[in-house]
């Protein structure tokens, strides 16, 4: 019955009863305690929560960087909870676009080469340079293709990262504090860009943040507390 519901709602993410237990020495840390979450295609939403709430663990799990200890996780209809490392890498490459607080660009590579990187690992026979150039043009960096990260401003670097996240047409974008390292003006630009991507191109965006101002600008806010979705 639930399957028919998910078909109707066109879910990008459907997580049921996720748990995650870390063993630190003798102590077991329960980072996720039976968390369930559904995210529809075309949604822009934010995940909030104090530190230690399990927010980062949820982000890593949804981003397929880590596997849950138990529970089910369907990404774009694929069950990823049981996948091996290489399958997870493949899913990350095709389905997830990451944006990080610290941009995480390769210092020595040009903007173009940075955006090409996911295409290289996709190993498809295609004109990578052309695709990467279009992605950079779509974030307004068509004039800065061959600049290295240290020749770009913080806002521009984050736009390169957005182009990199978009380049493989992922199922959703996972943005971890995307404005955390930017001044308020650049941060505002980046937020506008993410909102525009969602509105104009229908890209599903998940923003993980602790800034209520940022969260307020998204359609939906999910707060995590003690490894579970907090009731409103």
């Amino acid at each position: 019955m639930e399957a028919s519901i998910s078909a109707k709602k066109d879910l990008v993410i459907e997580a049921r009863n996720l748990t995650k237990v870390y063993t630190m020495g003798d102590v077991e840390v329960h980072a996720l305690r039976g968390l369930s979450l559904q995210i529809e295609r075309g949604e822009i939403m934010s995940i909030m929560g104090p530190s230690g709430s399990g927010k980062s663990t949820l982000m890593n799990t949804l981003g397929c960087l880590d596997r849950p200890t138990s529970g089910e996780y369907y990404l774009d209809g694929e069950s990823v909870a049981e996948m091996n490392d290489d399958q997870l890498a493949d899913v990350r490459n095709r389905k997830v676009g990451f944006i990080f607080q610290t941009f995480n660009l390769l210092k020595r590579a040009s903007a173009l080469a940075n955006v090409e990187l996911p295409l290289r690992y996709a190993n498809r026979n295609e004109d990578r340079t052309q695709i990467a150039r279009q992605a950079l043009e779509s974030v307004g960096l068509g004039e800065r293709l061959h600049h290295k990260p240290n020749e770009l401003s913080g806002g521009q670097q984050q736009r390169v990262a957005i182009a990199r996240a978009l380049v493989n047409n992922p199922a959703f974008i996972m943005a971890d504090e995307p404005t955390g390292n930017l001044d308020s003006k650049s941060g505002d630009e980046i937020m506008k860009m993410l909102l525009a991507l969602n509105k104009e191109r229908g890209v599903t965006v998940i923003i993980v943040t602790h800034d209520p101002e940022i969260a307020k600008r998204t359609e939906r806010v999910v707060t995590i507390r003690d490894g579970q979705v907090a009731d409103k």
């Binding site: 290489d86 990080f100 996911p118």
Partner: peptide
């Protein structure tokens, strides 16, 4: 280490 983490996040397999 961070670069390796990033490459993995972008879809690099162990073999890559």
């Amino acid at each position: 280490t961070r670069e390796i983490g990033l490459r993995k996040a972008l879809g690099a397999r162990k073999r890559d």
